[in-house]
Design a protein around this nucleic acid. Sequence first.
DNA 1: CACTTGACCTGTCCGC
DNA 2: TGCGGACAGGTCAAGT
Length: 307
Amino acid sequence: MPELPEVETVRIGLASLLPGRIIKDVWHDWPKSFPNSPSDVARFLLRAKITHVRRRGKVLIIELSSGYSLVIHLKMTGQLVFVGKAAEPRAKSSKTGAGEKFGGGHPSDSLLRNLPDKSTRAVIDFTDGSKLFFNDQRKFGWMRLLPTSQIPEIDFFKKIGPEPLDDDFTVQEFIDVLKTRKNSAIKAVLLDQSVLAGVGNIYADESLFAAKIHPSSPVNTISPTKLVKLYNELRAILKLAIEKGGSTDRNYVDAKGKKGSYLNFAKVFRQQGQPCPRCGTRIIKIRVAGRGTHLCPRCQKAPKGLK
DNA sequence: CACTTGACCTGTCCGC
DNA sequence: TGCGGACAGGTCAAGT
């Protein structure tokens, strides 16, 4: 599921593939996937050149020379897959068909399939013949054109909390933002995008396990020592996940169609019934904040008022 | 006002 | 094998 590390992995891929390309045509199947009017599309998207690819929380921002940006949320099953030749054909070692198809040399876990397919919601054609596919099985994701200069002023972006991996995001700031929700379960707070940007179910469970905090614990019952631990573990886990190309449960792939391997390193997520890597107790799955939640009942003691 | 639950969707898996 | 239903989870609207 695209959380911060997955979206960042897509961003890194797109940032290496898209800038400089010029949009020739756009197709989309579903108004909700891409609700801009045809006239706005014609004025601000067609013939525009891509200048930058940015990320804020779980949202991708593809900046265009028209002064507009294509803003994209992948939600749970969204993919942005680029098909075409990579910009610099420096390494000329392509011998496999897959390498050619996905723009230059891919490991065997590439998304080897033909696009578009039935999950394809939108296709952007570039003047050089390459294409960007927006696939979304469950149709929760969206993309829309917004004036670049106004993006920071839009409600959706104004509400997003600090980026946990920013260099100047301190442990004190982390504790301060958590304390704005002192009576809520810590997991619900971590998932709240207005408190902290980019954390979703996988990394909430993993970081709470690493810090030995029960996900149902109200924030104000957690010791400062443990909150510091949580800050450090969360950042380390997010960074490691980006290194591993994110987590692929079933759908997620990066801009080149490649799956992420972080779930191979997950200690509790989807590990119910398996022994805890620290103490051997069986990992359990419960519901917290309306989400499937994985934890070690021994390492992560429930707060007194039960779960 | 703080907090929780349901709706949005489709594909998959599980039990009968 | 087929079928119904629970489940998956990011976010917002609606509920308590």
